[in-house]
Simulated assay, not measured.
Amino acid sequence: MADARSIILHEYPTSPFAEKIRLALRLKNLAYSRVEIPVIMPRPDLMPMTGGYRRTPVMQIGADIYCDTAIILRELEARFPMPALKLPGHEGLAQMVAGWTDGRWFQSSVAVIFGENGDQVPDAFKKDREELSGRAFDTDAMKAVAPMMRDQWRARLMLLEERLQGGQGAGSGLYLIGMKPGLVDIHAYMNVWFMEQNVPDFLEQCFERADLTKAWYERLKEFEGQEPETITSRQALDIALLAAPRLVAATTRSEPQGLSPGEDVAVAPDDYGQVWVEGELVHADSQRIILQRTSEEAETVHVHFPRAGYLVRRL
C-alpha cells in the first residue's frame, strides 16, 4: 500500500508526457503507485497539492509535489541513481533535446493526430484544451494543415535515424547516445509513442525509411518494469496531509531577480497552461524552484518546478 515514501504518479493512460515518466520508471525498474486523473478538469483532489497547476503528469512523494517532467526526471535520478539515466553524453543535452521534443515536434504531433481524428474529439475536451492553451482548438484548421505537418513530423523522426546511423558507425548505435538508454532516449521516445497510439499507419509509413529508429523504439518498448498499484486521488491527498515535506536548504543562489527565501512568489509555465501557482519561496537555484503552500485539504506541501520553461514573479 502506498505511503509517504512511495512514488505516486498522477496521470492518465493517453498522456504522452506521462508516458515519458512511465518509461523512466520502467527503465529504472522502480515500484510506484498511480492515480488516474481525469483527462479534463476538474481534478479536485490534485489541485490542493499543486496550487492549481494543471499539466500532466504530477509526481508526489509524501508532501513533496513535482510539477513538469523535467523536474520529475531530475528528482527520480537524484533519489534513485541506479540504474542511471543521466549517462555520459546526456548531461545538459537531455534537457536541450526535451525543449525540441516537447515543443516543435509535439506541436506537429498534435496537428497530425487531431487532423486525422479531430471529428471524434468531444466538445468538452476541446473547451478544456482551449482554456489550457489560451487559443482555439480548431480541428478543421488542423485537418487543413495535416499533410504539411506529416512532412514536418517525418523530417523530425528522420533526425533520430541520422543520429542512430552516426552511432552505428562508431560501433555504439543501440540508443541515441551509446549502448544504454538514457534521458535523451526518453525525451525522443515520447512523440513516436504518441503517434503509434493514435495514427499507427502513418508511423509505419515513416518507419519504412527509418529501420534503425524502428528498432530503437521497439527496444525501448520491451522494458517492462514493475506493475504499478492504483490508488484513489483521495488516498493520495490523505498521504500528503499526514506527511511532511522533505527537508531542503532554504536558500537562493545568484538569483537574477534577487529572490530570497520567505518571499511570496508565483510560478507559471512560459508557454501554455499559465496558471500562476502562489506560495512562499523556500529554495531556488539555476534548475529548481520550491514553493511552500498550505491548505486545509493538504496542510503544508512543497511544490517543485524546473526553472527552464517557467516564469517566476514576486507577489
Score class of each variant (00 low, 15 high):
residue 166 G to T: 10
residue 143 K to P: 01
residue 62 G to L: 02
residue 119 D to A: 15
residue 153 W to F: 07
residue 72 I to E: 02
residue 67 C to T: 12
residue 161 E to I: 12
residue 167 G to D: 10
residue 141 A to H: 01
residue 128 D to V: 00
residue 140 D to L: 10
residue 183 L to T: 10
residue 116 E to A: 15
residue 86 K to L: 13
residue 69 T to W: 04
residue 160 L to H: 13
residue 167 G to P: 11
residue 114 F to M: 05
residue 119 D to H: 15
residue 155 A to E: 15
residue 136 A to W: 04
residue 185 D to Q: 09
residue 132 L to H: 10
residue 140 D to N: 11
residue 69 T to Q: 05
residue 98 A to V: 09
residue 182 G to L: 05
residue 122 P to C: 02
residue 89 G to K: 04
residue 127 K to E: 12
residue 87 L to P: 01
residue 89 G to I: 05
residue 138 D to A: 06
residue 188 A to L: 06
residue 137 F to I: 01
residue 154 R to H: 03
residue 96 M to H: 15
residue 126 K to I: 06
residue 106 F to V: 00
residue 133 S to Q: 05
residue 94 A to N: 14
residue 105 W to F: 14
residue 146 A to S: 15
residue 72 I to Y: 03
residue 128 D to G: 00
residue 96 M to V: 15
residue 102 D to G: 03
residue 106 F to S: 00
residue 101 T to P: 08
residue 133 S to V: 03
residue 106 F to L: 01
residue 166 G to S: 13
residue 94 A to K: 11
residue 93 L to H: 07
residue 106 F to H: 03
residue 147 P to H: 07
residue 180 K to W: 03
residue 121 V to R: 04
residue 188 A to T: 08
residue 187 H to G: 01
residue 129 R to D: 02
residue 141 A to P: 00
residue 130 E to S: 05
residue 160 L to I: 13
residue 154 R to V: 04
residue 95 Q to V: 12
residue 100 W to H: 05
residue 167 G to F: 11
residue 142 M to F: 11
residue 145 V to D: 04
residue 147 P to C: 09
residue 78 A to H: 05
residue 163 R to W: 05
residue 110 V to M: 08
residue 147 P to I: 07
residue 96 M to N: 15
residue 89 G to Q: 04
residue 89 G to T: 06
residue 162 E to L: 02
residue 118 G to L: 04
residue 162 E to C: 00
residue 165 Q to S: 13
residue 190 M to Y: 00
residue 153 W to L: 08
residue 151 D to I: 10
residue 87 L to I: 03
residue 62 G to K: 04
residue 117 N to C: 09
residue 63 A to W: 02
residue 70 A to Q: 12
residue 99 G to W: 02
residue 118 G to V: 02
residue 85 L to P: 02
residue 84 A to H: 13
residue 179 M to R: 09
residue 83 P to S: 03
residue 190 M to S: 06
residue 133 S to W: 04
residue 181 P to N: 05
residue 67 C to P: 09
residue 158 M to L: 15
residue 165 Q to G: 13
residue 134 G to K: 08
residue 80 F to T: 01
residue 166 G to K: 13
residue 148 M to N: 09
residue 161 E to N: 12
residue 135 R to I: 07
residue 78 A to M: 07
residue 183 L to A: 11
residue 70 A to V: 11
residue 113 I to N: 06
residue 184 V to N: 01
residue 76 L to Q: 01
residue 117 N to S: 10
